[in-house]
Amino acid sequence: MNDVAISVKGLRKSFKDVEVLKGVDFEVKQGEIFALLGANGAGKTTIIKILSTLLRADGGIAGVCGFDVSRQSAKVRESISLTGQFAAVDGVLTGRENLRLIARLRGIAAPKLTADRLLERFGLTEAADRRADTYSGGMTRRLDIAMSLVGTPPVIFLDEPTTGLDPKARLEVWETVKTLADSGQAILLTTQYLEEAEQLADRIAILHGGKIIAIGTLDELKRLFPPAREEYIIKQPTLEDIFLAITGEKEAEQCVR
């Protein structure tokens, strides 16, 4: 195995008459956070579903850790974890039970210890024995991501991890994802927010019209655009800035363009 965690070549998929993916190519290296940026309906989730063996492609090659997703799906499932667009936690079980369930299904030797460690790492120790349906949006998402890390699979899919979250919860999730980068796992993240891709990803690919139209680091992508002009503008705080200032959750952040 080389250092390529995910490799996608000429990936095609149609739903009825609509061609969603028209030949998508990209590679994600091990230990990299890779963001797939695209509008709603661009096909981001379709790519994630194909890579996580939930959906079959019509054409092209998709490989995870050197295994073909359609022919070696069992091997692929051992190498990945999926955090879907909507948090998939069992609301009736407690946070701890959710983690232990996944640990036992993955055949981990010490499910209890694994659960305790993840609870601590994700700041859920205090809430560990409460039912997950009493958690806030941000906590639910954190538990959701923690469940995906059980057994440290080498490849992690995060499908729109912050869609539908309030600004505070979004920051919580961003902090969480940033800490994942150090673990050496490859992370494929989809998002419709440019800012999220900027904040989290080592490399970004823009999916549009069924193809990747641009790919590279943030700096490389910036070079594709005309050179920056210096302008002085007075930036009004957005409602989000006001919300965060009042709730005191975020240090001031300046953008100079």
Partner: peptide
């Protein structure tokens, strides 16, 4: 609907 099935399907279960 809650996504638990998808979670299990994408796992070695």
């Amino acid at each position: 609907r809650g996504g638990m099935f998808s979670r299990f399907y994408a796992m070695p279960v």
